[in-house]
């Protein structure tokens, strides 16, 4: 019997390793898997590369990982936020490397990885600092930049509900990067507010089919509302 449900957050992240690349879903707090990130901090893995939209704010989540000095590099579109002081300090000190990627290119590169594409030509960023040194091509009169996939060892994502085969549904804009990160990582770990029986999720409404998910772990519901 295939059962992807992990009994605990600790066991869900047990095989993390130093130097791992980790995709983390979320746009601000919405969709950020805070409980899984706390488990990563407790696990102790360091020298991590974090791939996410933001570089964390406040004291928890990605900011907590940076504060605990576990992060070597951040690949993101929008690191600077009102409370991104932990990233700001370590970036300015040269202790965290930043690869800044336009948000849609971040999504496209993650999708390319999950879809098995060797690279994508994207119009975004053409002629700007963020395309400097990159290969370009004119196709049908429009200019494109060649961007390579972003793979990861792990994806930590947040969904509303999941079953033991790993099928997931999300809640409102907490969906954001979850479905595409789930496809791009070697090991995808989803925290959910609710574990349901097989067949309880409407197959017409499943957003992430279980083939993209390795582990599902239940956490108390509505953690975002409480954290915000």
């Amino acid at each position: 019997m295939i059962d992807k449900i992990s009994p605990s957050l600790r066991q869900a992240v047990a095989d993390l390793h130093d130097g791992a690349s980790i995709m983390i879903s979320g746009f601000g707090d919405a969709g950020a898997p805070h409980e899984l990130m706390e488990a990563v901090i407790e696990h102790g893995a360091s020298d991590l590369t974090i791939i996410s939209n933001n570089a964390g704010a406040g004291e928890t989540g990605i900011a907590g990982l940076i504060k605990a000095n576990r992060v070597r590099k951040v690949i993101c579109s929008f690191p600077r936020q009102a409370a991104s002081h932990h990233f700001d300090a370590r970036y300015r000190a040269g202790e965290v490397e930043l690869e800044l990627v336009p948000q849609g290119n971040l999504a496209a590169r993650i999708q390319a990885a999950g879809s098995g594409l060797g690279a994508v030509f994207t119009p975004t960023g053409y002629g700007t600092l963020l395309a400097e040194g990159k290969e370009t091509r004119e196709i049908d009169g429009r200019n494109y930049v060649l961007e390579y996939p972003i793979h990861a060892d792990f994806a930590l994502i947040k969904a509303r509900a999941g079953d033991r085969w790993g099928n997931l549904v999300y809640r409102k804009v907490a969906r954001n990067f979850g479905p595409i990160m789930a496809m791009a990582a070697k090991t995808t770990i989803a925290q959910v507010s609710e574990v349901v029986e097989l067949g309880a999720l409407d197959p017409e409404a499943v957003v992430t089919p279980g083939i993209f998910v390795n582990r599902v772990v239940q956490v108390a519901p509505l953690s975002v509302a409480a954290a915000a």
Partner: peptide, 27 residues
């Protein structure tokens, strides 16, 4: 609802007929 926010991370609402989608579709 902090899972219903806009790009500026301010709370918003969804009109009847509105929809949610992932970042790949959004971009």
């Amino acid at each position: 609802d902090w899972e219903l926010i806009n790009a500026g991370k301010q709370p918003v609402t969804l009109l009847a007929g509105g929809s949610f989608f992932h970042h790949g579709d959004s971009f």
